[in-house]
Design a binder for these strands. Sequence first.
RNA 1: GCUAUUGUAGCUCAAUAGGUAGAGCAGCUGAUUCGUAAUCAGCAGGUAGUCGGUUCGAAUCCGAUCAAUAGCUCCA
Length: 640
Amino acid sequence: MLEIVFKDGSKKEFSESIEVREIFRKLGVKNACAGKLDKKLVDLRTQVNFDCKLEPVYFDSLEGKKVYWHTASHILAQAVKNEFKYSKLAIGPAIDNGFYYDFDLKSNLNKEDLSKLENEVNKIIKENLKIERFVMKYDEAVKFFEEKNENYKLEILSENLNKEEHVSFYKQGEFAELCSGPHLLSTGEVGCIKLLNSTGAYWRGNSKNKMLKRIYGISFQNKKQLKEYLENLEEAKKRDHNKLGRELEFFTTVDYIGQGLPILMPKGTKVMQILQRFVEDEEEKRGYLLTKTPLLAKKDLYEISGHWDHYRDGMFVINSDDKNKDVLALRPMTCPFQFQVYLNRSRSYRDLPMKLNETSTLFRNEASGEMHGLIRVRQFTLSEGHIACTPEQLEKEFTDCLDLANFMLEKLGLKDDVFYRLSKWDENNKEKYIGDSEEWENVQNKMRDILDKFDLKYEEVDGEAAFYGPKLDIQIKNVHGKEDTLITIQIDFQLAKRFDMQYVDINNQRQYPYVIHRTSLGCYERTLALLIEKYAGALPLWLSPEQVRILILNESLYEKSKKLKLKLGENKIRVFIDNRNEKIGYKIRQAQLDKIPYMLILGEKELEKNSISVRHREKGDLKSMKIEEFINLINKELSC
RNA sequence: GCUAUUGUAGCUCAAUAGGUAGAGCAGCUGAUUCGUAAUCAGCAGGUAGUCGGUUCGAAUCCGAUCAAUAGCUCCA
């Protein structure tokens, strides 16, 4: 006898081992694509032969979608095998927004190939082939792939630790694929597949390996859902800062200036100035002292910090082949410079914590393919800061940094869009880092302890640390779903030693402080980019480079509008008049119009009543009001 | 850096098979004063990203290079 408990708490007994799908059938559960057995995702074909908890998984959950998408990726692999005789299979997982499959192909894939494959894929769905699971002995599986000359599959197999265990396969029609599942029961259940694009991707994600062809796709249960998804995708792309930011004249690029070196136009610069003032003021309130340090230094400095050995590829080096001149490098980080403030004289524990901030321009020689609008550039400005503190102060200071970061996110309205990541070192790749294992484990544990005291969900990722210490990274996704670090808070236990930064403790002993590297708002270019995407260009009032546009309907009102502008300007409201050359005109491009929070209309009607008509970009027409009333309205909105 | 795609006026896009560049919007000038993008008339804008090659002739074909886009790798 076995007892199965369901999500609603109900129980059912079965006399013998039974398949998940059979259980669901008996219970009348329909449309489940997999099961969750004691919290583990399992195939509908799984035999249950012990007491357990079980619940159905459907397409409406991400886990469920991934089952569909994984099956879709197998169908794609089958289609590619049908269409390209010499193709070899690599891997094809489901991802958060669909699936991909990597192939080794002799030829490139163009659009026609992709649509041909799409037809083939949907043909396989229509055929509604039964998908069966079977197992093979390890040796048989090796032989199976050797015959097919599938060297990537063989490589995966060779890493199978337990060669005694059977290897799991899934088969549909003639196509069999190494896979641990779970999968749907037939190809027809997938619904419809759209192949989105094809790109290159390195085998095993290693740039030293061969580049394979990757095809991305998505599938839905029906065409309506697919259409909706594709439309949403198009909508999201309209918010792309790289397009919108240029259209709205926040920034531009010039080919002969170079990659990753955007020109910030007046609007973009205004927003960055607002952000920068906001950040510096807030940091000052929180006890930071502002510094301004050089943008470049002799390589000697970087040799001490370790950048010369661990970060040289990322730096712009000057005079490297002139023996008569000092070799200099533009700074990729501010830490070694700002440390000199600490080192200016001897420090006691009474000086700590020492909190320094800087609005620092940095230069990083990113590889040519990495640049992306304002999100990834070669010169950028960071809201940077460093805190030197005693071990006892570390927790409080770290907590304060996190609080500051969250405060900033809250103010920008990005709080719900971010996720947290504890970025650790890679212990299999020690040469990338400075310091020994014990120190790393020690600090990482410390960081984890602090994080666990917060009500904060975070994931841990190996190999994402800085070379000098672990990081708390606050991540965000752009409109393309690509993840980037917005804010980072790092604990460093190495650089103080390298720079011989000491303090004298209460027992008159010399000690090294901990250093926290942190940003409060990340880099301004990137933050601006994400704000444009978040708000589709219609930034909140306090961040809008143009808060008010005055529209005059009669040339004779021009002088009056100038006075109005002056008056609003005195109240620190950013206002523009909609005409150039002192001529009337109420032709405003709609695209720009709905980005401006308020529009004031000034015409004969208003003149008579000595008032203005106000239009809000979202609320539409507001009642006409006196200028003072409008100023109050804006101030009220700004204060909350 | 790698795999692809793209590059024609400020923007969006045209031009049968290589035959010597055209339209809308924006801009400018003038008229119009018309209540929320697109009134009328006129003008001006391009050595086709750049450099080289093939050809009698190249926006179109080839090569190199620069830049942009998506993805990989890398990273704030």
